[in-house]
Design a protein around this nucleic acid. Structure first.
Lengths: 218, 218, 218, 218
DNA sequence: GATGAATGAGAATTCATTCAT
DNA sequence: AATGAATGAATTCTCATTCAT
């Protein structure tokens, strides 16, 4: 993990952060700030208490705006949910991408990716819940998230195959492998959600699986 | 897959099935039947529409009993949810255990297990939703389910290690591997939840991973 | 207070107590025992938790009989409530009557009555709640109880007047006085319901009021 | 009883009354009006039918607002109950205080207080039920009400003692006497709840008791 | 745009009462 | 008589959404 990597709290792709220097915000800036506040409030609440506990009243209270203001920014509650995972999911992938800068290829890179994911979860424990509950409460966003990650994996493995680091595979197999790896990291994260820390043993097991499988050739 | 293996709809561990011969059921038998009906109704509804849509009114209507009857069998709605995954989860593992009868060991057996799981999901598509939404709506039951499966994996791999089929691993690594494999199958199932059929390509990818990993030795 | 005076737990006007000698109870004896058990259960529950918390299920559980059995003894829940205060109220007045045996007349006797009431409440704290909540949940029984006590007071004061211990009063005044005295003892009991003990100061204040009123003649 | 004294229906300490001149009410004024309507509705229903019959649906219907509106003003039904006796109780004591303006001290004043209470009940018959059922349904409010009245009595009697109108008493005795007097007036009111009118005979009996007690000195 | 009071549809839960065994 | 499962009416409470200010 590099230290100058963005985290959930200091980076927000398109949205403006509060600018303490200027007191005067343009109308549009204020609106964007409100939107940002709503999203951050939602992320905090969903991350800690889950989607079901995330009422409009909770979100607006946390965001410091009036109840009705919510509906100036979102069609309805579902619209917020549909947007939340993309919002935090992009931060997660940016973090991982940044973490992988300069890391080699093949196995080393894949293990680094796994490790970066674990690191992200430790720093942003709310992300885990926003993600896994999305399968229930924002299934389209969840599917899109998975699809986005799957494509990333497929591209990465195509590169690894081209570099000769990795066994040959067709596209359908590659997608299956991407699913397997996503599931692997999700469930490993789940095993350690109490502690928040994924131990080196687990990472080693992952590495070993990637490198040689589990079963000896006969 | 063997054909004479029990499925969700024709086998119910302890609960009595309706006995068409005798018209007269004892009071206790009727009560057990009512319980069974409630559970089956809940399984059907959760499997198709999810826990959130599973209201007491829906369950009792589907079960053909009065609203209040529900509370003769369950403390509250959560109590039903807490019991549902164990109820259907046992059927699932029974199915897999039965499917593995007579199958060899090592890789072959692990691939057969994966395949049996895929087969079970095809026949009982509702199980997938009962399972993954449980993480949200019945987290204790979910954790217990995962723990039960994890322990099964650990035992299976210890046997494989003892038989020399499998690389050596310590307990903590074994548990991590179990998590990985559970995640793998969960996410592969997720990829194909629309079609309900998990293709041979995916099974082949899984087998290849188990056998040799993904990356070539340098 | 005399020691051989009956208390809530060892005396039950007409109802049989369990007879440990004979194992065989006649059908009617068993029925009377069940009735007694239901009443005692109700008295215990109402005394501790109030009428509202006194469900049929609670009463039958406490009495050790089946839910449905209740309706063999009472038309409905209200019928039980209507009978409960008379049932325990008679024990209370019996106690007081017994306590007054041999006590003189006039002021001394009235103070002894007040003191006996306080003593009864200390030993049977549940009575207080059965009584005061009856005004809400069994108003007819409550009115009858009050009427019975009022008449007792009126008779007692007529005797005191005849004996020259007490100022002359007409019947309507006497009834008003009875109400005042009943209210006085009820509210004094209320003041001390936490401790369960009514202090001598309060009794002294009562005595002083009876003896000379509160205000000096001008 | 003075005629220009406020009664339950025309005076409401802090809450605004509808202002027929201005059609436009500010948002806050409307909210206060809604609160007032809910409280008045509750007072009317509890006064006539008791707390148990006072459902949210009844209250909101009577108040002319939607069911859910109730919960904008009260946490739950109990919160309404807890507030109801203070709300009407203050009006009662204000009435009595106003009635006592200009009345002398000592016995005369105490009898006037008793009479004022009787008068209040005649005009506001609902108050009696709101009060006595509060012991069951809003015990904290009931205790606070009693405590408030008790303290008032204690202060009044201290003044009377200082003026030499009244026999000397310590604080504990004074509190007991306050309890006795509160009970006396409560039970006298109870005796006449059917007619709604407390006859002069009863007031005379009360006065006589205050003046000379009940029993002749020997 | 922001505000926050009002709305009312829905869901869970309780429990007195019934009745077949 | 005793039993206890079944019933369903009644009630509380939640909360997304609307809309007048």
């Amino acid at each position: 993990m590099t230290r100058d990597v963005p985290t959930d709290t200091d980076r927000l792709s398109a949205l403006p952060r509060p600018q303490p220097r200027k007191k005067k915000l343009s109308r549009e800036e204020k609106a964007q700030l409100t939107l940002r506040n709503l999203l951050e409030a939602a992320a905090a609440i969903v991350g800690e208490h889950g989607y079901a506990a995330t009422t409009i009243a909770n979100v607006t209270r946390e965001a410091g705006v009036a109840h009705g203001t919510f509906y100036n920014y979102f069609e309805d509650r579902q619209a917020l949910f549909d947007v939340l995972l993309p919002y935090v999911g992009e931060r997660m992938t940016d973090y991982i991408t940044a973490s992988l800068a300069g890391v080699g290829g093949g196995l080393e890179r894949e293990v680094a990716r796994f490790r970066a994911y674990c690191g992200y979860l430790r720093v942003n424990p709310g992300f885990y819940r926003i993600l896994y509950e999305a399968e229930v409460f924002a299934p389209k966003a969840f599917d899109a998230h998975i699809e986005r990650l799957t494509e990333g994996y497929v591209r990465a493995f195509r590169r690894a195959i081209a570099a000769g680091d990795c066994y040959e595979m067709g596209d359908e197999e590659l997608r299956a492998i991407a699913g397997i790896l996503l599931g692997a990291r999700a469930y490993v994260a789940m095993q350690f959600k109490d502690t928040g820390v994924i131990p080196e043993t687990a990472i080693a097991a992952y590495e070993s699986l990637m490198k040689q499988g589990l079963f000896k050739a006969k």
